[in-house]
């Protein structure tokens, strides 16, 4: 256990100023980890439902088409955008975690890397959401 903090010295304590924010307590390091867990769990539960709905192709074309109609509902389409956002965050933060684990300077740049992936997330999600909803909107208002 070489990575643990040394015990505080006995006697009159000179309070040493700690570097603010370790990797796993508070601040960006912890919150990115919390978000990673939540997005991972959401994706896991969706995967369960998604394999079951796709399995209906073995039942009949009609039953599959009926369940897929659910996905074409505008409200569900919005939830799909949420799912894509969750998966994209999980993927980008996963790359950040691997960079922290395997690149020797990774831990020093973990905070900057978080803001970098937040930036990439926004750059992908803003046009991505538009293209995900546009066909549904066109169908809804009969322009297609």
């Amino acid at each position: 256990m070489s990575s643990v903090a040394p015990p505080a010295p006995a006697g009159p304590v000179v309070r040493k100023k700690k570097p603010s924010g370790t990797l796993y307590r508070g601040r960006e390091g912890m919150w990115s980890w919390v978000a990673h867990r939540i997005t991972g769990m959401l994706t896991f539960f969706f995967l369960f439902a998604h394999v079951l709905d796709t399995a209906l192709v073995r039942v009949s074309p009609d039953s599959y088409d009926r369940i897929i109609e659910t996905y074409k509902n505008p409200i569900v389409n919005l939830m799909e955008i949420g799912l894509v956002g969750a998966v994209l965050y999980h993927a980008l933060n996963g790359i950040r975690i691997m960079t922290i684990d395997f690149w020797f300077k990774g831990p020093n740049y973990q905070r900057q890397m978080l803001w970098a992936i937040v930036g990439i997330w926004l750059v992908v999600m803003i046009p991505g959401s538009y293209f995900m909803i546009i066909h549904t909107v066109e169908n809804l208002f009969g322009s297609k």
């Binding site: 088409d65 897929i68 994209l88 991505g128 293209f131 995900m132 169908n139």
Partner: peptide, 23 residues
Amino acid sequence: VLGHLFIMNILDGGVQRINFAFV
């Protein structure tokens, strides 16, 4: 997964074009 999501939700008609024939 990102490839799958891009193809299924964005390319061509997005989710609106998915049905048994597509699969």
